[in-house]
């Protein structure tokens, strides 16, 4: 159960956004909007959902609070306790692990000074070990906020974290120099194909 936070209410902009989402569903089916609304609430509230937010959304959608709590506790992307304003999620599932995710986790722990599952004292960063995020082709990788940082090793991980700590926003995507998920070291097939415009 999430710790007490007395009140929660959407900001005007978020409320408008929520109303737009609710309007997508036919009358009587407003409960379908519960997941996007939880996401908005979590973004508004420093990346976690207090009890008050669950009850606020339940009221907004005409659901019993327990039904909202069931949804929020089922999905791992909803945090029911403070999880850090910036959440660092390192994938440690098999492909990333084979490609050295242990080193990435260690680098994160060292750079942030916390262990997996903990939040820094200033509440700025949270570190979490997660299951596959579906970017195995660029393993190992981690998700920070909404961005993927890929092709990591200890050094590049530290660089990304340090940059974030200093308030900068490092460029997301592969950190090893390649473009998206193109083959490492340049193309190996269809090398003779020419994209030159025909005369």
């Amino acid at each position: 159960m999430s710790p007490a936070q007395a009140k929660f209410e959407f900001t005007a902009a978020n409320l408008a956004e929520a109303k737009k989402i609710i309007a997508k569903y036919p009358p009587g089916r407003q409960a379908s909007a519960v997941m996007p609304l939880l996401t908005i609430a979590q973004k508004q509230n420093d990346n976690w959902l207090p009890q008050a937010a669950l009850e606020y959304i339940a009221g907004l959608l005409g659901m019993a609070p327990i039904r909202v709590h069931e949804v929020a506790s089922f999905y791992t992307m909803y945090n029911l306790a403070p999880a850090g304003r910036t959440q660092v999620q390192v994938c440690t599932t098999t492909p990333c692990w084979l490609r050295g995710s242990d080193a990435v986790v260690q680098a994160c722990e060292k750079a942030l000074g916390i262990k997996c599952g903990e939040v820094t004292k200033d509440g700025k960063f949270g570190l979490k070990e997660v299951e596959c995020l579906g970017a195995c082709v660029n393993a190992p990788m981690m998700q920070i906020g909404d961005d993927y940082y890929e092709d990591l090793d200890a050094a590049s991980t530290t660089k990304v974290i340090e940059a974030l700590k200093s308030g900068a926003k490092p460029a997301p995507g592969p950190q090893g120099g390649r473009k998206t998920s193109e083959p490492q070291g340049g193309p190996t097939t269809l090398t003779t194909l020419s994209f030159a415009e025909k005369p």
Binding site: M1, A64, P65, I66, R67, E70, S73, F74
Partner: peptide
Amino acid sequence: VEELGALGRGEHMEITTYL
């Protein structure tokens, strides 16, 4: 009375009353 529910999932699923 919609007060009973199943929280968590899989191995961690638990039946409880709200609060």
